[in-house]
């Protein structure tokens, strides 16, 4: 049996892992298994390895000419390495990565920790949203004085967000 990574040497390491009831198999030669850190339980996950092989086909859904403007990464590079080029690649290759993440994780929306800087941004955008809703209501109710105040508040919140 041939090694799944280098496709040249004889595979001597056979890995099977069951994740969420799905069986994943990969066959590796001595060299590739070392290189991929298969012996190291700390850094190795079969998912990571498989990403470098079959799963990378998912990303091909993005048009082939797409290139990340920040780091110059292309989907061909992803296929080769199973890793992305920079944080902006998540936006550039969104269409391809989306379904892949869905298969890989419990959900598609992050619900964990938020950096403090984003807290403020999130708070501000939520505040603006509420103010805008109130503004619409005020206009409908023809309460123009209130509407004018709300408009000023929105402007102020927007300047704060921009800074």
């Amino acid at each position: 049996m041939q090694c799944d990574v280098c496709q040249s040497k004889e595979a001597t390491v056979f890995l099977t892992q069951i994740v969420d009831g799905k069986m994943q198999k990969v066959n590796l030669c001595e060299n590739c298994s070392k290189e991929k850190g298969v012996n190291d339980p700390t850094g190795f996950a079969l998912t990571d390895l498989l990403l470098g092989l079959g799963a990378s086909q998912e990303i091909e859904k993005s048009p082939s000419s797409v290139k990340c403007p920040i780091c110059g990464f292309t989907q061909a590079d992803f296929k080769k390495t199973g890793r992305l080029g920079c944080s902006n690649c998540y936006t550039v290759f969104e269409d391809g990565i989306g379904p892949m993440l869905k298969n890989m994780h419990k959900g598609t929306q992050h619900t964990g920790k938020t950096p403090a800087a984003f807290h403020k941004i999130r708070e501000h955008s939520e505040k603006i949203k509420t103010l805008q809703e109130n503004l619409t209501k005020a206009i409908e109710a023809e309460e123009f004085e209130l509407a004018a105040n709300l408009r000023d508040e929105i402007r102020q919140a927007e300047t704060e967000l921009a800074s």
Binding site: D48, L51, T91, L101, H105, H110, K113, T114, F118
Partner: peptide
């Protein structure tokens, strides 16, 4: 960091 995907990592298997 992205509000939707959380902390962005080199490998999509660590994102969030």
């Amino acid at each position: 960091y992205s509000a939707e995907l959380g902390y962005l990592t080199a490998c999509p298997s660590n994102v969030g």
